[in-house]
Design a protein around this nucleic acid. Structure first.
Lengths: 337, 337
DNA sequence: TTGTACGCGTTATCAA
DNA sequence: TTGATAACGCGTACAA
């Protein structure tokens, strides 16, 4: 017994004694077919176990109902919630999600973008706006709608749903300044190809400047989003000439790594040193003390991004989502000396 | 200026002064075409910015080079690492990943399976083996290879890459027994449609039986993988008639939730109560004390699953991966009374 | 309301 | 090594 070929539209048509056109209509716009014929057809579909051939459908309609998302990584909680919401929303609109990760590498990302387009993606979700003009031109040429998430730039020509990383970081830094902190340090992700990371550092510097603190007095160290490596980076920052009273982290994972290392070094948080995070991941609530951080509306972001891609509005959509600071205890007034 | 239609194989053929057949050959098996013609063709491809039409290719080859994965959720770290590795491995073999989540709901899962197959997935990654026979028959009928991960059953007729949840849980429980624990409680995920959860509870019971402890003396409470809800469940378990000296959790997220609640209740871990987890997620290392848990080789699992799906071996593959206990401090001998 | 017939862009078979 | 040409399975004018 060899592989039984899958039933085609024609098989269904024969079984139901109608033309393939009618079957196709029955499946795609049931209201355009008589109820009686419809029943016949659906019965045939059912008994044959028919399912439309994807390639043929895509070829005929020039659509795949598939949306691609290229995120830096899914092994990290940062993008998980947003991606989950993105997929849920796509699902409710009958679209499927294609996922790839770029490891924060623009070359890999470009390759993934090409791959997704070659895979027939009807639209693309990209993280951040920092990529070469060539890539944007390629995408435009292929006529694929994209939406950029996790960043916000009101001057962008692209669909965008995100938040003001600079302002959020600035606000958090201002809070630290209000509490009396004067010596800052910043633990960032690599900023080279990461506008969110750049903006978060920039926001902190703006707050310092506004408070007449030299922004260049704040050491910045770049490290991956890993508990372990963040601990190492934290220890390095402590040795800065102008020993910081607060270490601001560009991400909660880093903050948790810093907190863990602080504990290992016998430092009390926030008594001996304050630590802040960014993203409001669940891990900020399970450590002691909880991490003071910036809440980012990941789910709304994912959902809004999906909506934009699904509805294919001709003019570009820009949605700025609000963020807010969540105080949990890891940031407090510095000890008096 | 209207949308410029994308170039087709025929456009390339014209530009290069060859037939479409030659262009197709040149792109798919370059060695079968003269170097001279190849150069001409590649130049044309480049200048036109040609990219093969996905639907047409799929229709002609009956393959999409797309693999689907249906996991309970991506918002939770449990499946993130494995899925990431799965995608990476697919990528190195030129395949792309389709993702959907089922929320641990078999009906949603079935719908997602149908959707993925309709989307032309060449293969499917499914979590656990507990699903209706009807679904398996549907899949077989569609001639789609699947691999089941996160579970292991040597008698299964399906491709499978996972680990022995029962044995792993049994071993961990034995360890607790060795330490002197006699009164156990178990915090599980809902077991109804979840064989991993069932097996983990079962493994614990087996260890108890083997040590002449009545397995029915162990209260089992089911709760979602959420820090918050796990805390509530933990508190409920503490009120069991036979107050447990150790609460075993089917997952690290639950263990962390339990630990957090214990702290809030003023209980010291492990002095007042021991807690164990399962999965060896990163969060087990950042809490104090670290969670004693079972290490699960998520990455290898994802990678092996991808390999199986890519290579389409005719006979069914079964890979059992080893797990081991990681002691971190949340499990210790019970206090003497 | 239904049927006929063609086009969608590739691959693959068979000759040349 | 290359070129005609026939599938591949579905949507959709257009006609009936």
């Amino acid at each position: 017994m060899s592989k039984p070929a899958l039933p085609t539209l024609e098989d269904v048509a024969k079984a139901a004694n109608v033309s393939t056109a009618t079957v196709s209509r029955c499946l795609n716009s049931p209201e355009r077919v008589a109820e009686q014929t419809r029943d016949k057809i659906l019965a045939a579909v059912d008994s044959l176990g028919y399912s439309p051939n994807f390639g043929a459908k895509a070829l005929a309609t020039k659509r795949t109902n598939t949306i691609g998302a290229i995120i830096p990584t899914m092994a990290n909680a940062i993008f998980a919630r947003g991606l989950q919401a993105f997929q849920e929303t796509l699902g409710t609109h009958g679209a499927t999600l294609l996922v790839a990760s770029s490891y924060y590498d623009p070359e890999i990302e470009e390759q993934q973008i090409r791959s997704m387009i070659a895979r027939g993606a009807d639209g693309l979700l990209l993280i951040g706006q920092s990529r070469s003009e060539r890539v944007y031109e390629f995408i435009k040429r292929q006529n694929i709608p994209i939406v950029i998430a996790w960043s916000y730039d009101k001057n962008s020509e692209h669909n965008m749903v995100g938040f003001d990383n600079t302002a959020a970081s600035r606000t958090l830094t201002q809070r630290a300044i209000e509490m009396g902190h004067k010596r800052f340090a910043f633990m960032s992700a690599e900023r080279r190809h990461n506008d969110r990371a750049r903006d978060r550092v920039e926001g902190a510097k703006q707050a310092l400047s506004a408070a007449n603190i030299d922004p260049d007095s704040m050491p910045v160290v770049e490290t991956p989003y890993s508990i372990e490596e963040s601990g190492v980076a934290f220890e390095a920052l402590l040795k800065s000439p102008n020993k910081p009273t607060v270490v601001m982290c560009g991400n909660d994972v880093q903050a948790v790594g810093a907190l863990k290392k602080a504990r290992e070094l016998g430092l009390r948080v926030p008594e001996d040193i304050s630590i802040t995070g960014f993203d409001d991941l669940e891990i900020t609530t399970i450590v002691e003390p909880g991490i003071t951080t910036v809440h980012v509306p990941h789910r709304q972001m994912g959902q809004a991004a999906a909506e934009i891609l699904i509805h294919e509005n001709p003019d570009t959509q820009r949605i700025e989502l609000p963020t807010y600071t969540v105080e949990r205890g890891s940031l407090a007034a510095p000890r008096e000396h």
